[in-house]
Design a binder for these strands. Structure first.
Lengths: 207, 207
DNA sequence: TTGCCGTTTGACCTTTCGATCAAATCCACG
DNA sequence: CGTGGATTTGATCGAAAGGTCAAACGGCAA
């Protein structure tokens, strides 16, 4: 058996390491150039492997991208899942905001990979958006609506409230070049964003 | 003289029409696939012209993209330029917000083209970001700071206030697929966004 | 030491890409 | 008309793309 893929034998140490190396390189390249704009040669060079060796571990360029996508949405939604209907409303939302901003700061490549996919019409993720994502958002939107009805937070359209958290946090990762170009050298974008967004949402959520 | 490019003779009617057709097709294709992910064949097909014919009107793929970029930043910054230091502070900011949202609604392809460029590290626009853009933003930031100092609006970091307007409005164009996937059929994203963002910024700006 | 199997790679295939060019076609003007 | 410049395109080029393959390599068990 040549390819580690076929039949689900447990992965050897080398396989595990190299698959991870490849996925990491692919994340780097795909997040910067998009799927169609990236080449196997680029990924191979970043990974420090030969192109045929890449295709020894993954059957195709698509398969590498698909593997990244499979992990991505889950990582990306995890903070929202943690929003607890039984917690303190404002505190829960502020905690979600903070986790999302940390995700942008610590995993900007993942953010940009996601942005690339959506920008291009989500050809490989549309189903997940209309299924998994929509279900989760609807569920949390109901929680927000209940909090608003109980007078715990301001009465706002819950979906758009969630969008605003996404937009404001992801902006700092996806448009990082622009943010840095505008702010110049003597700024810490994420630290400042944290303070600003904290203020913004506290004002917004006050009933 | 074969190529309409060399020497700046006035453009014929046909040249004007075809150059515009090509730029429009290129906007469509580049905004969806990014520069490296787009091909001349795609653009040619959308434009309804042959590939050599494209290259009769523009010397290269790069030149088409460059032409789009040259127009883009100006279009994109126009609403901010209109922010008037002598107007009513809250009204001026709300008007800017509305114009920016209308830009997202009416020119989503331009928004996505811009987003693609920034996402990829702004290789063809970095200079403009650090020059023209930064200068304009700094200038308007000073206006916002003055308004805050005069107690006309809340005291907020002006650059981040501007970022928040960009992020929140452009999100509806750049992430449109996601917005629609989450909201489902029976929603008018932009109409709802207008109401929500109006509320958000009125609350935020209140001193 | 040797044999086996997982791993690596150089060479190569086909397709697609950006670009070129000569020939064909179109069109406005005299 | 008819002619000259503007416009269009089929054929083609070299480079780069994704992917294949057989041969070479490496390390561990017997």
């Amino acid at each position: 058996m040549a390819n580690g893929q076929a039949e689900d034998r447990p992965l050897t140490r080398i396989q595990q390491k190299n698959r991870q190396t490849i996925l990491d390189a692919a994340l780097e390249v795909f997040s910067q150039n998009g799927f169609r704009g990236s080449t196997l040669d680029q990924i191979a060079e970043v990974a420090g492997l030969s192109k045929p060796n890449l295709l020894y571990y993954f059957p195709s360029k698509d398969a590498i991208h698909a593997q990244l996508m499979a992990t991505l949405l889950d990582t990306w939604l995890h903070p929202l899942r943690a929003l607890d209907a039984d917690g303190d409303p404002v505190a829960e939302i502020m905690a979600y905001l903070r986790r999302k901003l940390e995700l942008s700061r610590d995993f900007p490549r993942e953010s940009r990979l996601f942005a690339n996919e959506i920008l291009q019409g989500a050809p490989r993720m549309k189903a997940a958006l209309e299924g998994e994502l929509r279900t989760l958002v609807d569920e949390k939107a109901a929680v927000l609506r209940a909090w608003a009805a109980a007078g715990k937070i301001a009465d706002l359209p819950p979906h758009h409230l969630i969008f605003s958290i996404w937009a404001l946090t992801q902006h700092y990762a996806d448009f990082e070049v622009q943010v840095r170009a505008v702010l110049g050298e003597d700024h810490d974008p994420y630290a400042e964003a944290q303070g600003f967004l904290d203020t913004l949402f506290r004002k917004l959520l006050a009933p």
